[in-house]
Nucleic acid binder design. Structure first.
Length: 819
RNA sequence: GCGGGUGUGGCGGAAUUGGCAGACGCACCAGACUUAGGAUCUGGCGGGUAACCGUGGGGGUUCGAGUCCCUUCACCCGCACCA
């Protein structure tokens, strides 16, 4: 124990964080303290961090936040008697490594390995109890073999398919993107505006799972915000497909609508410019205008199509449809506000009751017919409408349906049209199938071959993994081919089916692929025969607590849920949802902006660990604010936490020597109140207030005149252990124990010790505090009243007033109402 | 536009079910110990001389509102022509 002599000659214990932390880290490593025991009789608890992409820039204090949180939680659960699985691994496929490879001519595997070593060292210095024996890396063949295996299952189930279609294309990353990766019309990674490109693509049929992905959100203890974001993204809407006959054509036009009740208000139709009917509907007079408009639309980037002021544009095709009931002719237009990949790519436009249709109708002087009489809107002169009216009401201008309510009309109209075979109830989703191929090098090769005679043939399971070959140049070709296409030894192969010559698929999987199932692999990370042993996975999963940033709300979290459901259907696992509970930690900001290397505003944890120790930084990360809220880094405030730990260390170290066995009743009360408070705040994830509870307790202890007893010191140490594990182990040893503090159990609270005999009652007059009086807890109201009225402060407030009413909240407040 | 969130001292933030607003920490001020203090310890610290006033603004319910209701403003996040 370090001791220094202060000015006055007193000897003081010195808190040597660095020495203590190195000592215990070595200790834990040697004893295997952090390894998860498969044979433990304790109940299981799986606490998982969203595993990191090992970037070159390492960790900053913002990254620490989530890892500290999960570690505190894991250690707390350990002390609560659970066998905790708290693993860590690397989401190691991805563009930065590849871009680095292009720039520096280092193989991505080399750069990635170096970054991983760096990350791992940093995480170890944090003192987190990761079970490093389970470490894994999505870019290793041992792992991606099974990612490819899962792809084969998807293929076999018909959930992976190829389709020629215009997809989102990032000209800078030179690859296709999923819908989820396009933010405000730009590439999520690099911010480059995304364009459309027609490509033959691997897709995953995630839409097939839309309904279950939506419904099963109910099973999850996730932040409402995230559930809403997913629900919103899936975007379920109930409606109907209606068929319209076309004038002079044999075909029927299908439209999707959620408002079949407004059928009589349909004054025109709109097709997406890409709609297959456009050609045949267009009359010779309109041909030029139409093809010009179609060309224009296709040339527009997504960004332009979205962000351009929403002035409606469009062209009349010259064609007409027939109203299914009245037989009236309805002109058919094309406009880019109708999207080809939603619904049927065609709509019936009801300008009176849809704002977009209204704007379009105004722009092109198309008729507007009100068919719903809404409350407070008595006008029947539809030309006077200033905007569409989407309110509820009674049908009008709708022939036999007049007088029905909106829900009645929806029901009856669809029933009637259904009877004629020209309507069908359907559900539409905003969710699109997942573009699951990237034209880049550093990813899992998609394990199929293209055979001239057999077509697309999956690689035999026994031939997995399809190894990612070494290449000379990593640059994307930009032609839509991945760099793998240039490697003949990779491309040329034999067909697993007919054994004839065939070519390998050269696209790779998107970065999300590996993270779609890594949480399963952690239960059995070294299995070479299977992706994992089902019994192990079913025993550990689902993840009890999943901690990570909210930025994955619809990307990773939706994809991982989809994979889980597929594997459940495939009977590879026995549960439908991967993550029971989710917690999103807030970001760390500096000068109000998100901390990041690229913005040049990172705070390096290494220096802080050197100066104060990891325990101080851990605790400060918690103290900085509510864990779910963004927090501004305050370089000074960490001092306060460090002072607290120094004080705590001294208090325990110095008290340890002469600590009596017997505890005083006062300390016993103090201790129980503390444990109660800290536990309550911990379980409700109010970690910032957990830290203040410690501060208050230690201050109260240091104000004690009597020596602090052993029980109190032990309790303090155990409670502190999840937050400051190194310090706790050290003082646990100083208190004379030999084992790890993490083999102890979290202290229990005796409710009896929380009850105080006396209470302070606030005396108010007309709601204003006038005095405080001490009473026996069970004092009768009459006694309290007498004491309250005896107070001189109260008396002066009562002067020349008469008492109207008295309210007594037992042991808390006595309020006298006067006039 | 739609959906969600947040507004409390100089700052970060506390405040079970409506019941003492400002816990805890930072910064600041004063003092102690010191050759010295960017160490440590003690005290103070919303505004106002006071009565009182104070949780973005206005209104309401209540004996009592940061907390509930209505209204309004500001900022943040998500979605965004999804028929």
């Amino acid at each position: 124990m370090g001791v220094f002599v202060c000015k006055g000659g007193c000897r003081m214990v010195n808190y040597e964080a660095k020495r203590i932390e190195e000592k215990w880290r070595a200790h834990w490593e040697k004893s295997g303290r952090d390894r998860t025991d498969e044979d433990s009789k304790r109940p299981k608890y799986y606490c998982l961090d969203m595993f990191p992409y090992p970037s070159g820039s390492g960790l900053h204090v913002g990254h620490w936040r989530g890892y500290v949180l999960s570690d505190v939680w894991s250690r707390y659960k350990r002390l609560m008697g659970y066998e905790v699985l708290h693993p860590m691994g690397w989401d190691a496929f991805g563009l930065p490594a590849e871009n680095d490879a292009i720039k520096k001519r280092i193989h991505p595997a080399v750069g990635t390995a170096r970054n991983i070593a760096n990350f791992k060292g940093q995480l170890k210095r944090m003192g987190a109890m990761f079970d490093w024996d389970r470490e894994m890396n999505t870019s290793s063949p041992e792992y991606y073999k099974w990612t490819q295996w899962i792809f084969l299952q998807l293929f076999d189930m018909g959930l992976a398919y190829r389709k020629e279609m215009p997809i989102n294309w990032c000209p800078s990353c030179k690859t296709g993107l999923a819908n989820e990766e396009v933010v405000d019309g730009a590439c999520e990674r690099c911010g480059t505006p995304v364009t459309k490109r027609n490509m033959n693509q691997w897709m995953l049929r995630i839409t097939e799972y839309a309904e279950r992905l939506l419904n099963d959100l109910d099973l999850l203890e996730w932040p409402d915000k995230v559930k809403k974001m997913q629900a919103n993204w899936i975007g379920r809407s109930v409606g109907a497909e209606l068929e319209f006959k076309l004038v002079d054509l044999d075909d029927r036009l299908k439209v999707f609508t959620t408002r079949p009740d407004t059928l009589y208000g349909a004054t025109y139709m709109v097709l997406a410019p890409e709609h297959p009917f456009v050609q045949k509907l267009t009359t010779p007079e309109q041909r030029v205008a139409v093809s010009e408009y179609v060309e224009q639309t296709l040339a527009k980037s997504n960004l332009a199509r979205q962000q351009m002021d929403k002035t409606k544009t469009g062209v009349f095709t010259g064609g007409y449809a027939l109203h299914p009931i009245t037989g009236e002719q309805i002109p058919i237009w094309i406009a880019d506000y109708v999207l080809m990949d939603y619904g049927t790519g065609a709509i019936m436009a009801v300008p009176a009751h849809d704002q977009r249709d209204f704007e379009f109708a105004r722009e092109f002087q198309l008729p507007i017919v009100r068919v719903i009489q809404t409350r407070g809107n008595e006008t029947k002169v539809t030309d006077l409408m200033q905007e569409s009216d989407t309110g509820d009401g009674i049908l009008m201008n709708s022939g036999p349906y007049n007088g029905l309510t909106v829900p009645e009309a929806k029901q009856k109209l669809v029933d009637d049209l259904e009877a004629q075979g020209i309507a069908r109830r359907t559900v539409g989703y905003k969710l699109r199938d997942w573009v699951f191929a990237r034209q880049r090098y550093w990813g899992e090769p998609i394990p199929v071959v293209h055979c001239e005679t057999c077509g697309i043939v999956p690689v035999n399971e026994t031939d997995l993994p399809v190894m990612l070959p070494d290449v000379e140049r990593y640059e994307p070709t930009g032609t839509g081919d991945s760099p793998l296409a240039a490697i003949e030894s990779f491309v040329n192969t034999t067909c697993p089916s007919c054994l004839g010559p065939a070519k390998r698929e050269t696209d790779t999987m998107p970065q999300w692929a590996g993270s779609c199932w890594y949480f399963l692999r952690f239960a059995d990370p070294h299995n070479t025969e299977h992706p994992f042993d089902r019994a192990k996975v079913d025993a550990w999963l689902p993840v009890d607590m999943y901690i990570g940033g909210v930025e994955h709300a619809v990307l990773h979290l939706l994809y991982a849920r989809f994979f889980t459901k597929v594997l459940y259907d495939r009977q590879v696992i026995g549960f439908k949802e991967p993550f029971t509970r989710l917690f999103n930690q807030g970001m760390m900001t500096l000068n109000g902006i998100k901390m990041s290397k690229s913005k040049g505003n990172v705070v390096n944890p290494e220096e802080l660990v050197d100066k104060y120790g990891a325990d101080t930084l851990r605790m400060y990360e918690l103290f900085v604010g509510p864990p779910e809220v963004d927090a501004e880094w305050n370089p000074r405030a960490i001092e306060g936490v460090h002072r607290f730990l120094t004080k705590t260390y001294r208090l325990i170290a110095e008290s340890a020597i002469h600590a009596p066995k017997e505890e005083s009743p006062a300390l016993r009360k103090l201790r129980h109140r503390f444990v109660h408070q800290v536990t309550e705040r911990l379980v409700s994830f109010r970690f910032n207030t957990v830290v203040s509870a410690f501060m208050e307790f230690v201050t109260a202890l240091s104000e004690q005149k009597a020596a602090i007893d052993q029980m109190t010191l032990q309790t303090l140490t155990i409670c502190l252990a999840p937050l400051a594990p190194h310090l706790a182990e050290e003082v646990w040893e100083l208190l004379g124990h030999t084992g790890s503090v993490f083999d102890q159990l979290w202290p229990e609270v005796d409710e009896h010790d929380l009850i105080e005999e006396t209470a302070i009652v606030v005396v108010q007059v007309n709601g204003k505090v006038r005095d405080r009086i001490e009473i026996q807890r069970d004092a009768e109201q009459a006694v309290v009243r007498e004491l309250a009225l005896a107070s001189s402060h109260v008396q002066s407030a009562l002067k020349e007033k008469s008492i109207v009413k008295e309210i007594y909240v037992s042991g808390k407040i006595f309020n006298i109402v006067v006039r």
